[in-house]
Amino acid sequence: MTNNVQTKAKEQLTNEEIAEKYNNGRKVIDFVGHKKIFFGISIAIILIGIVCNFIFGTTLDIQFSGGATLKFSYVGDLDQNELYDFIQDKTTDRITTSFSSDLMGSTGNNVSVQFSGNDAIATDIQQSLEKDLQEEYPDNEFTVLESSSVDASMGVKFLLKCLSAVAIASILMVLYVTIRFKKIGGLSAGVMALVALFHVVAMIYFMYVIFRMPIDSNFIAVVLMILGYSLNDTIVIYDRVREERKLLGRRATVAQSFNLSCTKSLKRTIMTSVTTLSAIIVVYVVAVVYNISSVKGFALPMMIGLISGCYSSVCIAGALWVMWQNRKAAKRAAAKAAKAK
């Protein structure tokens, strides 16, 4: 019995041996060993987000909350914060404003004023606000371009449909990971991938809260895109883990297998993320230069989502999966010990 234990101990590879034999002598990064740091960073950001959520609250775009929108055109430059305060003083409804520029040059600069509520804006109110703006900013030539309204009940239905799309996508992703990676604990891999995806969604949501951005259709689009992008990174790592587990067998622990797999795929993950991030940064810079608020509202969350998605795949999903596997192994060992008695 003692000889068997000693033989198994000799077969167990050390971190140095794994690095030398299976990583071309390069150091294997201990991702699992630093999980407390990674978890601590995530918890700290989430706590900051929760505090900001209590302070600032969550603002829903009229697409979800219902309300009305007035779009004005104007020429020249003006202080956007000052304009917001001026319009807010003229109404009892809570408003949000977004600014953009007509790149074709037909209407110049535009400002969209969104009024919360469930009623369309009466013609006399539109004319009164337009007159007030023309009197306050005579050199900017304010003109009403269009008016639209969204019923609150329709906004809620739209929000529920969007959330349903996110939920269905998440469930299908978990099922796919569970089926594809049966050999490395299927369900545990799928569930931990889902936890990492929720982590990404939380980061995007808190970004909206901290930057005081209204949650609109861009939020749903960004979440769906980042869910797929982040899951792809996670699948690449899981696929590498499956191959390394075949190669190493029981000579390496689950943590060692994951660390080796993640180290080998890290360059690919970073390069893919940096390439995509570079393209989104260019889009964001163009949106800032031309003051296209709708594009800025998409590009900024995408940048945060790409970074947090890469971080979640490498530092969160894998560490949680290793913890699950170790817990299962401990339960099996305890059950065997109980039977032996």
Rank of each mutant, 00 (worst) to 15 (best):
M225D: 05
L227P: 02
L224H: 11
F198L: 08
I204E: 01
M203T: 02
N218T: 10
I204N: 05
F198P: 07
Y229F: 14
S217Q: 12
V222E: 04
F219N: 08
L224M: 14
M207Y: 15
G228K: 00
M213P: 03
M207W: 03
A202Y: 09
I226N: 04
V209T: 10
V201M: 15
H199N: 11
V209D: 12
R212E: 14
V200L: 09
A202T: 15
V209Q: 00
I210A: 13
H199V: 05
F211Y: 10
F211R: 01
I210R: 10
I220H: 03
A202M: 14
H199T: 05
F206D: 11
I220K: 03
A202R: 03
M203D: 00
M213A: 10
F219C: 06
Y208H: 12
P214D: 00
Y229H: 05
V222C: 12
S217C: 03
S217L: 13
S217I: 12
M207D: 00
V200R: 08
I220R: 03
L224Q: 11
Y208Q: 09
L227K: 07
L227D: 06
D216H: 07
D216C: 09
G228L: 01
M225W: 05
F198D: 03
F206T: 06
V200F: 04
V201A: 14
I220P: 00
S217K: 12
Y205D: 11
M207T: 14
V200I: 13
I215T: 08
D216W: 04
V223P: 05
F211D: 02
V201S: 13
L224K: 10
I210C: 12
V200M: 13
V200E: 13
Y205G: 11
Y205F: 15
A202V: 15
V209S: 00
F219Q: 08
I215V: 15
I210M: 14
R212I: 10
F219Y: 15
D216Q: 09
F219M: 11
F206C: 01
A202K: 06
M203H: 04
Y229K: 02
V223H: 06
I210P: 00
M225K: 03
M213C: 03
F211M: 13
N218Y: 07
M203Y: 03
F206G: 01
F198A: 02
F198V: 12
D216M: 06
F219V: 03
G228P: 02
H199C: 06
M207K: 07
M207C: 13
F211V: 08
M213Q: 15
M225P: 02
P214G: 11
I204T: 08
I226M: 10
M207G: 14
Y208G: 00
G228Q: 01
I226Y: 05
R212T: 12
I210G: 04
Y208I: 08
A202P: 07
M213N: 11
M203N: 04
V222T: 13
A202I: 15
L224E: 10
Y205P: 11
R212Q: 15
F219H: 09
I204C: 04
V201Y: 08
A221Q: 09
P214W: 11
S217P: 03
P214L: 10
N218W: 08
A221N: 07
F198K: 00
M203I: 09
F198G: 15
I210V: 15
H199D: 04
L227M: 15
N218E: 07
S217V: 13
M213L: 14
V209N: 01
V223E: 00
